[in-house]
Computed example of a mutant assay.
Amino acid sequence: MTLSGIHAAAAPKAVGHYPHARRMGDLLFLSGIGPRDPADNSIPGNDYFADGRVRRYDIEAQARAVLANVRAVLDASGARWEDLIDVTVYLTDMARDFKAYNAVWAEHFPDPASAPCRTTVGISALPTPIAIELKCIARIED
């Protein structure tokens, strides 16, 4: 089996030197994906102080954006939204953001029985000023 790296033109550029996804057989492993806007690299819902620090952010805007970015990588990889099988969610403020994120998740996956498995982890920081990142695994049928 060969591994094939995938770069999605409709998704934000990777923050580091890695592909958006890598396919191994019928499994697709997505690199961590954040909510940055693919067009201009801005972060939806962020409001900044003059010195560049984040004053406040909108987790719902970031959650919708990160899910759209996941969809863009799935599309570029030949997978569908329904092919997601496992998602790890990283939140920088679990106490503040879990409930709102969970509501956005439910908009995108209204039937829990057909939603991908999900683990949500609270972390102290991400490499850019984002509040959420997703790590996903999908299955691709040939």
Rank of each mutant, 00 (worst) to 15 (best):
residue 1 M to I: 11
residue 3 L to D: 10
residue 4 S to Q: 12
residue 5 G to I: 08
residue 5 G to S: 12
residue 6 I to F: 00
residue 8 A to I: 04
residue 8 A to N: 02
residue 9 A to W: 00
residue 10 A to N: 12
residue 10 A to T: 10
residue 12 P to D: 03
residue 14 A to V: 05
residue 14 A to L: 04
residue 15 V to N: 08
residue 16 G to T: 08
residue 17 H to D: 12
residue 18 Y to L: 14
residue 20 H to R: 12
residue 20 H to W: 05
residue 20 H to L: 09
residue 21 A to W: 03
residue 22 R to Y: 04
residue 23 R to K: 11
residue 23 R to A: 03
residue 23 R to H: 02
residue 24 M to S: 12
residue 24 M to W: 09
residue 28 L to R: 02
residue 29 F to I: 14
residue 29 F to V: 14
residue 30 L to R: 00
residue 30 L to E: 00
residue 31 S to E: 05
residue 31 S to L: 05
residue 31 S to A: 14
residue 32 G to Y: 10
residue 35 P to D: 09
residue 36 R to G: 02
residue 36 R to H: 12
residue 36 R to N: 09
residue 37 D to S: 12
residue 37 D to F: 08
residue 39 A to F: 11
residue 40 D to Y: 05
residue 40 D to W: 08
residue 42 S to P: 05
residue 42 S to Y: 07
residue 43 I to C: 00
residue 44 P to F: 00
residue 45 G to K: 00
residue 46 N to P: 06
residue 47 D to N: 10
residue 48 Y to D: 12
residue 48 Y to G: 11
residue 49 F to T: 13
residue 49 F to P: 09
residue 50 A to R: 14
residue 52 G to I: 09
residue 56 R to D: 10
residue 56 R to S: 14
residue 57 Y to D: 04
residue 57 Y to H: 13
residue 57 Y to M: 12
residue 59 I to L: 08
residue 59 I to M: 06
residue 60 E to Q: 14
residue 60 E to S: 13
residue 63 A to D: 01
residue 63 A to C: 07
residue 63 A to H: 00
residue 64 R to D: 06
residue 65 A to T: 05
residue 66 V to N: 00
residue 66 V to S: 01
residue 68 A to I: 01
residue 68 A to M: 07
residue 69 N to M: 02
residue 69 N to S: 05
residue 70 V to R: 00
residue 72 A to E: 01
residue 73 V to T: 05
residue 75 D to I: 11
residue 76 A to S: 11
residue 76 A to T: 07
residue 77 S to A: 13
residue 77 S to H: 04
residue 78 G to Q: 09
residue 80 R to W: 08
residue 81 W to C: 03
residue 82 E to H: 08
residue 82 E to W: 04
residue 83 D to W: 04
residue 83 D to E: 09
residue 83 D to Q: 11
residue 84 L to C: 03
residue 85 I to T: 15
residue 86 D to T: 07
residue 87 V to H: 01
residue 88 T to I: 15
residue 88 T to L: 15
residue 89 V to K: 03
residue 89 V to A: 08
residue 94 M to Y: 12
residue 97 D to I: 00
residue 97 D to Q: 02
residue 98 F to H: 15
residue 99 K to L: 15
residue 100 A to C: 11
residue 100 A to T: 15
residue 101 Y to V: 05
residue 101 Y to E: 02
residue 102 N to H: 13
residue 103 A to L: 13
residue 105 W to G: 04
residue 105 W to S: 07
residue 106 A to I: 11
residue 107 E to A: 07
residue 107 E to Q: 10
residue 108 H to I: 06
residue 109 F to D: 06
residue 110 P to E: 05
residue 110 P to I: 06
residue 110 P to K: 03
residue 111 D to P: 07
residue 112 P to M: 02
residue 113 A to C: 08
residue 116 P to A: 05
residue 116 P to W: 03
residue 116 P to I: 04
residue 119 T to I: 13
residue 119 T to V: 13
residue 119 T to S: 13
residue 120 T to W: 03
residue 120 T to R: 06
residue 120 T to M: 13
residue 120 T to E: 10
residue 121 V to C: 11
residue 123 I to R: 10
residue 125 A to P: 06
residue 125 A to R: 15
residue 131 A to C: 07
residue 131 A to I: 03
residue 132 I to H: 00
residue 133 E to R: 13
residue 134 L to Q: 02
residue 135 K to Y: 07
residue 138 A to Q: 02
residue 138 A to N: 01
residue 140 I to E: 00
residue 142 D to A: 14
residue 142 D to W: 08
